[in-house]
């Protein structure tokens, strides 16, 4: 069955079983492999994307629920001129990624948090950033979020 929705501003049509998780439609049918598979049960956040602007763990949403909606993935964060999103730039500046596998999801979660709060407090960061990073990049994730939202002074306190 064909399901139509928008991905990164583009209209797409995916021919797949209705129960196929959005994650696998993105990765296998649309070949947008920046969104990662980590657990498949909404427990790690590696698969995080935005659906109509809301942070969503795409491994646990069937594409039938996505019909007619608008999805943004890590590949869609850049501006139309190809410039990196502020959060992506902050991630490079703070040298956040190690293996990098969780980072698409982390960045999508951070962008959603910043869009919702403007400049998130430490407590808001704690609450929203629940994605797993096995490499332990958490201090730099926090630092990058603070730096991306003009809270550079606070960002300096976390040294690692």
């Amino acid at each position: 069955m064909a399901i139509e929705f928008k991905v990164n501003g583009r209209d797409v049509s995916v021919e797949a079983d209705a129960d196929t998780p959005l994650l696998w439609a993105l990765r296998e049918d649309l070949q947008l492999t920046g969104t990662k598979f980590g657990c498949g049960i909404a427990a790690c956040g590696a698969c995080s994307v935005h659906v109509d602007g809301q942070i969503t763990r795409s491994c646990s949403v069937p594409i039938s629920e996505i019909a007619g909606r608008s999805v943004t993935t890590i590949e869609g964060l850049k501006g139309s001129d190809g410039a990196l999103h502020t959060v992506q730039r902050a991630w490079i500046e703070a040298q956040v990624p190690q293996c990098g596998y969780c980072q698409s999801g982390q960045i999508m979660a951070a962008v959603a948090l910043i869009e919702a709060t403007g400049s998130p407090s430490d407590a808001q960061i704690d609450e929203a950033m629940t994605n797993i990073c096995r490499c332990g990049t958490y201090p730099r994730i926090r630092k990058a979020i603070l730096a991306a939202t003009g809270q550079a002074a606070a960002a300096l306190q976390g040294d690692a």
Partner: peptide, 19 residues
């Protein structure tokens, strides 16, 4: 899976690590 194998998340990691 990660529901029963507990990996530390950001909120539980020390916000400051002085290396």
């Amino acid at each position: 899976n990660f529901n029963d194998y507990n990996i530390l998340k950001l909120a539980d990691a020390p916000p400051m690590i002085d290396v």
